[in-house]
């Protein structure tokens, strides 16, 4: 059993209007040291034992569906997890 944590964020070259609004909001609260905020998505995928190539499958689903390569980057962490 594997637990996979997937992080999807807008690419550095793409402007993040949501992140910018949050950064400005933090700044108006007095947190002037927060220079930049990028907002993304966090997903947890639970794999059962039938999947042999977990890493290959994770890359495949990230590229096919979980992220849009035109505007987004992804990274992932694979953790072994005990059977529930």
């Amino acid at each position: 059993m594997y637990k996979v944590k997937v992080y999807v964020t807008l690419r550095e070259s793409v402007l993040d209007p949501q992140g910018k609004a949050v950064q400005q909001s933090l700044s108006s609260l007095g947190y002037n040291g927060v220079e930049d905020v990028r907002i993304g998505k966090y997903m947890e995928l639970q794999f059962d034992d039938t999947v042999t190539d977990v890493e290959g499958t994770v890359k495949e689903v990230c590229e096919k569906l979980l992220s849009n390569p035109v505007i987004e980057d992804y990274r992932y962490e694979i953790e072994e997890s005990a059977k529930q």
């Binding site: 807008l10 793409v14 209007p17 609004a21 035109v70």
Partner: peptide, 17 residues
């Protein structure tokens, strides 16, 4: 159509959110 790749590019949130 953008997601399917039939057209190039992608959509972001409107600039003014």
């Amino acid at each position: 159509l953008l997601e399917s790749g039939l057209l190039p590019g992608a959509m972001l949130r409107n600039k003014n959110l």
